[in-house]
């Protein structure tokens, strides 16, 4: 990794809410330009971590910095460097879309920001709704407005807390194109999501949280190799399989057979045994492990 100041640096972060230890010593470094995924089950502490970065929550101990600026000591610079799309679908019903974005710009000290506001609205398909009151926007539109609000000050670091929850396929796709574009331009992205295929496709590196601790943190590629559970699905011309395989081959409801294996050599043996027993393979499908398998595995183990 580069020597540059990390876009996000979190160290020994702890936070307790009355009886819940939401964060229990979290350390993370995210480099500039990364597309980083933060995964974990409900209540793992993802939003708490993001809230601390954003200054919405104060940590009990530990440090957090955005682009090298401590989020408490240098909160002005830290917040200028950070754009946050909150998990909750919030809006101010007193204003329309354009007013909302102008006001948000003003909070960051940007008075004449209309050019940029028009551009964000265009990219997020908000232009036709510019004069609509935020209350009358659909859920997906409100979500887009939240994304737009997070971008008014062109933050180098963008944090998205489950931006696609309850969002239709079209918006999800256009949102990801947009965010990937920002990432290619050099913006650092921190994403939390419960859609693991999204994280797998987008994130270069992923950390998994559980019970307020980081239980895994690696490149997506390395994480995918963590589990060597492959699965083969076979259609055979016989109802009985060789005795040696009777425990391992599972007969599915649709008549096919399923086998889990960790080494391709096992698959070779199986095929040889089947041939030896005179059983013909009519069809075979291999399933590669995906992030969901890895995630489930890690959550079970830890």
């Amino acid at each position: 990794m580069s020597q540059a100041t990390p876009a996000i640096r979190v160290n020994a972060l702890r936070k307790r809410f009355r009886t819940t230890q939401a964060l229990d010593g979290v350390a993370l470094d995210i480099q500039p330009g990364e597309f980083f995924g933060l995964l974990g089950p409900n209540g793992a502490g993802k939003t708490t971590l993001i809230s601390i970065l954003a200054g919405l929550t104060r940590a009990d101990s530990g440090q957090a910095a955005v682009m090298g600026h401590d989020v408490v000591r240098d909160y002005r610079q830290a917040r200028r460097a950070l754009g946050v799309v909150p998990q909750e679908l919030v809006y101010d019903p007193f204003f329309n879309v354009r007013e909302t974005l102008r006001i948000q710009s003003g909070y960051f000290g940007l008075r004449h920001n209309d050019g940029w506001i028009d551009e964000i609205m265009h990219h997020l398909d908000l232009t036709p709704h510019a004069d609509k009151n935020t209350q009358s926007l659909s859920g997906g539109m409100k979500r887009r407005l939240l994304v737009a609000q997070a971008l008014v000050h062109k933050p180098p670091v963008i944090v998205l807390d489950e931006p696609t929850a309850g969002v239709d396929v079209d918006l999800r796709r256009s949102l990801w194109e947009f965010i990937s574009g920002l990432n290619r331009e050099g913006h650092t992205i921190l994403l939390t999501t419960h859609y693991l295929e999204e994280a797998e496709a987008l994130c270069g590196r992923i950390a998994m949280l559980k019970g307020g601790r980081v239980v895994a943190c690696d490149t997506t590629r390395n994480l995918l190799q963590l589990t060597n559970e492959h699965c083969a699905q076979l259609r055979l011309d016989a109802e009985v399989v060789p005795a040696a395989w009777q425990g391992r081959l599972h007969h599915d409801a649709d008549g096919s057979w399923r086998v889990n294996f960790s080494d391709y050599a096992e698959l070779e043996t199986l095929l040889a045994d089947l041939r030896g027993a005179g059983v013909r393979v009519l069809e075979m499908q291999l399933q590669e492990p995906d992030l969901e398998d890895v995630f489930t595995d890690i959550m079970k183990r830890t």
Partner: peptide, 13 residues
């Protein structure tokens, strides 16, 4: 309404 975050996120003292 939760929109207090809009004024808590910017660098306002």
């Amino acid at each position: 309404q939760g929109n207090i975050v809009f004024v808590l996120l910017p660098p306002l003292s």
